[in-house]
Amino acid sequence: MKKTHIVALVLIAIAIATLISFMGDVTTYETIASAKQKPGKFVNLIAKMDKSQPMNYDPVKNPNYLTFTAIDTLGNSIEVVYHNSKPTDMEKSERLVLKGKVEDGKFECKDILLKCPSKYKDDANANAKNVSASVQ
C-alpha cells in the first residue's frame, strides 16, 4: 500500500469521525409543546409573535431585554426572553426561528432569525397586497 493511500485513508477516517461528532452536536426543530418536555435542551422553535399579548421592550431602561409571547401553528404559546436588542420588524415577521432553551417555563432565547415577507425574496402575494391596498 502506498503512503499516499494510507494518508488518504487516515484523513478520510478523521473526516468521517468529525462528521459523526458533528451529528452529535446538531440540534432539532421542536414545537412549543415538545420543547417544554425537554427543559434545558437547546432547541429551535418555529413560531411567530402572539400580538394579542404584550411585548416588553424599553431601550431606555435596558436595550438588552426583550420579552414577548410566541405562538406556534399548533396554537401553543410560551413566554420568550431575549437578552439583546429587538430585531427590527419582528412584529411583522410571519415566521420566527427562535434558538434557545426552555428554563422555568420560559424560553431563554439566544438568537432570533426572522423570516420576513421579503428579504431578498420576491413575495408575489405580499407585493400584490401592498399595491392593492394603495389603490383602494
Binding site: 452536536d25 440540534t27 426543530y29
Partner: peptide, 11 residues
C-alpha cells in the same frame, strides 16, 4: 427535523 448546532460558527 435536524437543525444547526447551538453555536454554528464554532462548529
Amino acid at each position: 427535523n435536524v437543525a444547526e448546532p447551538e453555536d454554528p460558527v464554532f462548529s
